[in-house]
Design a protein around this nucleic acid. Structure first.
Length: 659
RNA sequence: GCCCGGGUAGCUCAGUCGGUAGAGCAGCUCACUCGUAAUGAGCAGGUCAGGAGUUCGAAUCUCCUCUCGGGCUCCA
């Protein structure tokens, strides 16, 4: 019989030959094909092919192939845990980015400990060495429930679908479909609910590592029992596994918390409290440079500055809805002279008061109020994470009040502004998400639709691609969230842009329109860095501490080779200062090599060495960051020319200030 | 908040069986004046996160609190 093999063409196959035989003949080598697609459906390699089928191999070194390997390795993990802890209930074990996990409930409320991982790993190795096969079977709902009678989580998964007749995504993942239950049985007798596909046997597995243990709530719901989760990673080969482990080490080197201490930028004094950073002189200078750049950009882009206090009486947050909807995220109240005060969790109510301070005319719109506004949010202790997640954060926050017909153009303008501003900081790889109405929300459905539609049409108008994140909006507004991918492929959420139809009503905002009637303005909330603290963390990690020269606290250091060159070194330093460079001189109290090493570790962009020859010739030796080949005898004027360009602030590209 | 693992000098870490604290780097002093990633010697530096308990004796064992890290939940 003939089948169509993708990328190969039509091939001849004996009728009792299966996919394994086909893979042997046409795959990239032994065990490189882990599953297949027949006529578009993902299947195990044991699936029979028929005359005329179209077959596509799923190779081990692809995203889908790895997912198959990881999912199968998760089954091996479950089997190992059940062997070591008889009576364990196993829940779910999907493949995830870069790996997999499996959730368990151990008997007698036992918990995994770190030292269990090597035990489990060696049990998994035994299972893999047994060369167990995976085979798929289908059961009726009732049959499935009988099979898993002693596994309550599996029964719950089956029932969650059977009862409602719909298909939960997670349940489908786990092997429950509309009409039947899909089960995989290993040759050892271990069975698990699973959609598959799986590798044909455990001999396809082996390049895995168990990475960590954790508690995890059943179905992600903190009101349900907490299960014991084991995370692992699995790859198609030892070398791919090793590469992944090296990537993790690379990420650890970039950790902004580590670099923050090493480069003397900031720390979190326990005396102040969790999640409340202090910035040291170098960190504060970086912050200043970031903020000044943003302030100038905003001013030129038609924003006006605002400045507001850090706390306010409770009534303000009652009107805004924060006390009703956001109280869990706020610091507890303070009683003062008979009033109750709260630290502000957002800046919007304060900016609204500025809008409200006098009557407004349509001629003033759009009115764009901008502030680096520090807000305080009660983050649960386990959520804190260096500068990326703190309890006191500064938003580059703005509230834009505009008329209805200005809304879409204003959003378009904003998106261009965001991408230009982030681009100026060297970040260019973005994904845009539209976050829609969450379960808990204020306002009417029509208002949410209007607001969401305006975001989507603005994105469409300027041709920016986006994904929809259902139910991820704020309680008062849908959002456009900008995520960026850093130098080593990690995703961070930065900017957020929200169309709010609620707060203008709650505060009864108005403006005098052209036809002499009072209209309600529309309001946009937006933060481009998101939080200055987090944005700094992202920059540090993205650049591994080697920030663009214009953001470096120290841009140039001049090293005289010996005492005789000191005076000349100070002349060079002065010349650098004159063109606006940040520079210092390190005199020859210790060997040149030692000073160079120190400055290189500090990631100083230009290490300049001057000796007797330079004094005579008016030259410098330039050792640039990222290079170990110094350029000797460079005329000082030439160096200053190069430096002028290097220290210059970047232009905003892609945003026209006259927009 | 929940599960697991940590907290020893400014930083990175060692500290055995419970016997009273150690290194490297950084700092200070002195000497060295050096041409591209660590000059040498000396000095100083610790309520072993905090508290309670067990013990003749606790960095070490037990409990509590604080705090940090990895996850879960939440989120800028």
């Amino acid at each position: 019989m003939k089948v169509e093999l993708l990328d190969i063409g039509e091939v001849e196959l004996a009728s009792d030959d299966g996919l394994v035989e086909l893979a042997k003949r046409y795959g990239k080598g032994p065990k490189t094909v882990v599953a297949a697609r027949i006529n578009g459906h993902l299947v195990d390699l044991s699936t029979k092919v028929a005359q005329g089928d179209t077959v596509e191999f799923i190779h081990a070194d692809t995203v889908q192939g790895r997912a198959v390997i990881r999912h199968s390795t998760a089954h091996v993990l479950a089997q190992a845990v059940v062997r070591l802890w008889p009576g364990t209930y196993y829940a779910i074990g999907p493949a995830i980015d870069d790996g997999f996990y499996y959730d368990f409930e151990l008997p007698n409320e036992q918990h995994f400990e770190e030292k269990d991982l090597p035990l489990i790993t060696s049990e998994m190795r035994k299972i893999i060495d047994e060369n167990q096969s995976f085979s798929r079977r289908k059961y009726s709902f009732q049959g499935g429930k009988t099979l898993f009678a002693d596994q309550p989580f599996k029964v719950e998964i089956i029932e969650s679908v059977q009862g409602r007749g719909d298909t939960l995504e997670a349940a489908s993942e786990e092997g429950v479909e509309d009409d039947a239950v899909s089960v995989y049985e290993n040759s050892s007798g271990f069975v698990d609910l699973c959609r598959g596909p799986h590798v044909p046997s455990t001999s396809y597995l082996g390049s895995f590592a168990l990475t960590r243990i954790s508690g995890a709530y059943w179905r992600g719901d903190e009101k349900r029992p907490q299960l014991q989760r084991i995370y692992g990673t699995a790859w198609e080969s030892k070398s791919a596994l090793d590469a992944h482990i090296r990537m993790l080490e690379e990420a650890a080197k970039r950790d902004h918390r580590k670099l923050g201490i090493e480069l003397d930028l900031f720390h979190f004094p326990p005396e102040i409290g969790s999640g409340l950073p202090v910035f040291h002189p170098k960190g504060a200078l970086i912050r200043y440079l970031m903020e000044e750049y943003a302030r100038k950009a905003h001013l030129r882009a038609g924003y006006e500055f605002a400045w507001t206090p850090h706390l306010a009486k409770s009534n303000l947050f009652s009107i805004s809805g924060h006390l009703e909807w956001y109280k869990d995220g706020m610091f507890p109240p303070m009683e003062l002279e008979g009033s109750t005060y709260y630290m502000k969790p957002m800046n919007c109510p304060m900016h609204i008061l500025i809008y409200q301070s006098r009557s407004r005319s349509y001629r003033e719109l759009p009115l764009r109020l901008f502030e680096f506004g520090t807000v305080y949010r009660y983050e649960r202790s386990g959520a804190l994470h260096g500068l990326a997640r703190v309890r006191g954060l500064t938003q580059d926050d703005s509230h834009i009040f505009c008329a209805k017909d200005q809304l879409v153009p204003e959003v378009e303008r904003l998106i261009r502004f965001v991408l230009a501003l982030l681009g100026a900081f060297g970040l260019k790889d973005f994904e845009v998400e539209v976050a829609t109405r969450p379960d808990k929300y204020i306002g009417s459905d029509e208002e949410w639709e209007t607001a969401t539609a305006s975001l989507i049409s603005a994105l469409g108008n300027i041709g920016v691609e986006y994904k929809v994140a259902e139910g991820e909006g704020a309680f008062y507004a849908p959002k456009i969230d900008v995520h960026l991918t850093d130098a080593i492929g990690r995703r961070w959420q930065v900017s957020t842009l929200q169309v709010d139809l609620q707060e203008p009503q709650r505060f009864q905002l108005g403006y005098m329109s052209q036809d002499n009637s009072i209209d309600i303005p529309y309001m946009l909330h937006r933060a481009l860095f998101g939080s200055v603290e987090r944005f700094m963390a992202i920059l540090i990690e993205h650049f591994e501490g080697a920030l663009p020269t214009w953001l470096m606290p120290k841009q140039v250091v001049v090293l005289p080779v010996n005492e005789g060159a000191n005076a000349y070194a100070h002349e060079v330093s002065k010349a650098v200062k004159k063109i606006g460079g940040r520079v210092s001189v390190e005199e020859a109290r210790e060997p040149l090599g030692a000073r160079i090493r120190r400055m290189k570790l500090e990631k100083v962009p230009f290490v300049v060495v001057v000796g007797d020859d330079d004094v005579v010739a008016g030259t410098v030796g330039v050792n640039r960051r990222g290079s170990n080949h110094p350029e000797r005898d460079m005329p000082i004027e030439l160096f200053l020319e190069e430096l002028k360009v290097e220290i210059r602030e970047p232009e905003l590209e892609g945003f026209d200030y006259d927009d």
